[in-house]
Design a protein around this nucleic acid. Structure first.
Lengths: 367, 367
DNA sequence: AGAGTAAGGCAACGCTGTTGCGTTACGTCA
DNA sequence: TGACGTAACGCAACAGCGTTGCCTTACTCT
C-alpha cells in the first residue's frame, strides 16, 4: 500500500505548531505572543504568522491588550470556543448518552436514551444516528464529526467493535463505517476508558503528560497517556486493565483466567466488602505506576462515583505504602472533571483531538 | 527556565529524516532511493539530498547498483558500521561487563571485571572509567560516548542512581555527571531493562514498534516500547514490573507490599518450583499485553537464560489462554538476540540512539 | 511635547522538501 | 553498430516554514 502523500513535511511543521498554540490557548487564560513563543520554542515573529493562520480559520481571536509599564501593550489572544463543535456518544448495553461540545470541550447539550439490550446492529446504527442528528441541531460553529465511546474490545484504527466471546449481536460491528455512511460526517470509535482520557487531556492540556485514567463502569478499564500521547497499542486494544491478575488462582474471570482485577473487584462488591474492592483498585493503580511511571491518576466512571472519596483515599494510601522507598516519586490522584459525562465528552474530544490535536509523527511509517 | 533554542524546526525535519534513513539502512540489506522514499513518504529527490548529508558525514556509502530490466540501474546504499562507535557498560553489584559496539550495534570488544560489593562511589567511577578507557582503544570510527545500564531505580534524565532504602553507598550517586567529568565523553545512564530494550530496537529497527522486554536478572524488570518510543515515564522511573502485585496478600516483598511478582518469582525458585516461577513470569507478561497491547515480547536476562525454553513456553501458553476470546490479537514471544550481552550492548545503543535515533518531538515542551 | 521603552509588522533570508525538465546509463531491436 | 525506449538521477527553480534585521506603533514617564 504505497499511499499517496497527503501532507508535506512543511505542512506538518505548521500543523504541529498550530496544534500547540491551540493547546496553550485552551488552558483558558488569554495568552500573549511572548508566552507562546516561549512555550513552542520559536520566535515571536513565528507566532505572529501562526496566529494569522489560526485567526483566518476563526479558531483564535484577539482578546484585548495588557499594559505592563512603558512600551506598547501586549496583545492577548484567546481561543474561540464557538467556532467548532463535535458530537460525543457514550454507548453501553442499556443506553446512549450523547453530548455536543464546543472547541474548548464545554457541553452545549446533553441527551439520554434507554435502548433495548439486544438491538441488532442496523437498528443500533439508526439509534445512534438519530441521537447524533438531534445533537447536531444545537449550537453554533462548524460541526466536525461524531465520536463514539464504548466498553469492551474496540479497534480504534479499524473502527470496529471486536466483542467478547459470548453470543453477541454487536460482535465485529463496523460501527465507524456504518455510522459515517449514515451521518455523512467523520466518525471515530474508541474504547470508553481511552475516550475518557482523551477528554481529560483535551480540557487540561499539558497537565496529563504522563497519566493513567482508571474507569470503573460495568467493567474495569485503564487508559494511559505517556509522554503526551494516548496509548492505543498494536491492535488498538490497550486498556484492558480489568484483566490484570492481582490474585493468582483467585476468583474465576469471564476471560478464562483467575484472579483478574475485575473479577476480584466485582466479587468484593457483591460480598459487600467495599474496602476490599477499593484495595483491588488501589493495587492495580500502584502496579501501573510502577510499570510506566505516570505522575497523575484520574479516577472516573459511574460505579466508582458513589464512593470516590474512599476509593481515592485507598489509592493514595497504597501509593504511599508502595512507594515509601522512593520519596522522589510523587503521584497526584484526582477525580475526573467531567462526572458521569466523561465518556461522552471524551468521545467528542476524540474528534477535536483528531482535527486540532497533537500532530502525527514527523516521519511517516517507519516500515 | 527560558532555554535558548538549539535547533530550528527545519533542522528537526532534516534530523528526523536522517534518523529514519539510518534506521532503514540498519536493517542490513542495501537499500535504494525508491524504497527509502516510500518508507519516509517523501520524494526520491528528497532522498538524494538526505543521502548527500549522510554521506558527507560518512554514515552511509554507496553499495553498488542493481540492474533490473532496461533503464539506468538502481544505486544501492548501505550503512557504514565502522564510522562510529559507542561504549556500553553493564553495572551490577558484583561486576562490570563492558562492550564497544559499532554503528550497527555489533560488538567489537568485550571486557569483564569483578568488583567489590561495597565500592564507594569515587572508586566505582574510577573503575568504570578504567574499563571505558580500555574499551575506547578498540576499533575504528568516531567514539560517541558511553552508556551505563544498571538495575534498580535509575533516573535517566538526571543521570542519577536513586537507590533503594537499604543503607547503600551508591544511593543518589550522580553517575552520569561524574563519569562524564572523568572521561570527557558524553555519558548516558539508564535502567538495565530499558537499556536492553533500546539495544533490541536499535538492531532490529521497525520490528519492535510496540513491544515489551522482560528482564530477569537479580530482580525482575520490564520495559516498554510503545508506538516506537521507549517508555521512561514522568520520573524516568518506568519498568519496575517486578513490584507488580500478582497475589494480593502473598509473599512479603522488600518494597513493603505483599505478593509482588519479584517476591513470588524468587520464592518459587527458592522452593525449587520452576513451573510456578515461569507462571509468575507468564502472568505479568499477559497483564502487560492486556494493559498496553504490545505485539512482541522479548525475554532476556542472566537468570532466565538457563530455562528460557520453558519460560517462553509458559508465556505462550498463558497468552493463548488469556487471549482465547480475542483471536485477532497475536503476540510474538522471542528471546533476546544478544544473550548475556544484552544490557551492555543496550547501554551502548543508548548512545547511538541518542545521537542518531528517532527525533525528539517536533514541537518543544508543551508547557 | 519629547524621550524612552516594549510590542509587533514587513521584507529579505536560509533551509526544508517539491516540481519540472534535462542527463545518464542501461537494455533492446533494427 | 547505432537508434530507440526506459528507468534512475541530478540540476535549478519553487513554495513554505521559521529566522533575522529593521522599522513602525503605542504606550509611559519626564
Amino acid at each position: 500500500m504505497t499511499g499517496v502523500r497527503q501532507t508535506t513535511p512543511l505542512d506538518r511543521v505548521a500543523g504541529a505548531h498550530d496544534a500547540a498554540v491551540l493547546a496553550v490557548a485552551r488552558r483558558g487564560d488569554p495568552v500573549s505572543r511572548a508566552e507562546l513563543a516561549d512555550a513552542l520554542q520559536v520566535t515571536p515573529q513565528a507566532i505572529s504568522k501562526i496566529m494569522g493562520r489560526l485567526m483566518g480559520r476563526g479558531l483564535i481571536a484577539e482578546a484585548g491588550t495588557l499594559a505592563a509599564g512603558p512600551g506598547k501593550p501586549t496583545t492577548l489572544y484567546r481561543i474561540v470556543p464557538s467556532s467548532r463543535r463535535a458530537i460525543g456518544l457514550h454507548l453501553t448495553r442499556s443506553r446512549v448518552h450523547g453530548v455536543v461540545v464546543d472547541l474548548s470541550g464545554e457541553i452545549l447539550e446533553r441527551r439520554e436514551l434507554e435502548i433495548g439490550r439486544l438491538q441488532p446492529v442496523p437498528e443500533l446504527i439508526e439509534t445512534l444516528a438519530t441521537e447524533a442528528r438531534a445533537l447536531a441541531e444545537v449550537g453554533p460553529g462548524v460541526l466536525l464529526g461524531a465520536g463514539v465511546g464504548m466498553p469492551g474490545p474496540v479497534d480504534w484504527s479499524e473502527g470496529v467493535y471486536r466483542g467478547t466471546s459470548d453470543p453477541d449481536p454487536w460482535r465485529g460491528a463496523e460501527i465507524r463505517r456504518l455510522l459515517l455512511e449514515e451521518l455523512g460526517l467523520p466518525v471515530l470509535l474508541d474504547h470508553d476508558s481511552r475516550a475518557a482520557l482523551v477528554g481529560e487531556t483535551w480540557s487540561q492540556p499539558g497537565l496529563l503528560h504522563d497519566a493513567a485514567l482508571v474507569l470503573v463502569e460495568d467493567g474495569l478499564g485503564a487508559s494511559l497517556c505517556l509522554d503526551g500521547s494516548i496509548v492505543r497499542g498494536a491492535h488498538s486494544h490497550a486498556g484492558e486493565a480489568g484483566h490484570t491478575v492481582v490474585r493468582m488462582g483467585g476468583t474465576p474471570c469471564t476471560c478464562g483466567r483467575r484472579g483478574c482485577a475485575q473479577a476480584e473487584y466485582q466479587a468484593a462488591l457483591a460480598a459487600g466488602d467495599d474496602d476490599l474492592a477499593a484495595q483491588v483498585l488501589a493495587t492495580i493503580v500502584v502496579d501501573i505506576v510502577r510499570l510506566v511511571d505516570v505522575d497523575r491518576v484520574v479516577l472516573g466512571g459511574r460505579t466508582v462515583y458513589a464512593h470516590h472519596e474512599s476509593s481515592m483515599n485507598a489509592i493514595r494510601a497504597a501509593l504511599a505504602e508502595g512507594l515509601h522507598a522512593e520519596p522522589w516519586v510523587h503521584v497526584e490522584v484526582m477525580l475526573s472533571t467531567r462526572g458521569t459525562d466523561l465518556i461522552a465528552v471524551g468521545a467528542a474530544c476524540e474528534v477535536l483531538e483528531h482535527e486540532y490535536g497533537n500532530p502525527q509523527a514527523l516521519v511517516g511509517p517507519g516500515s
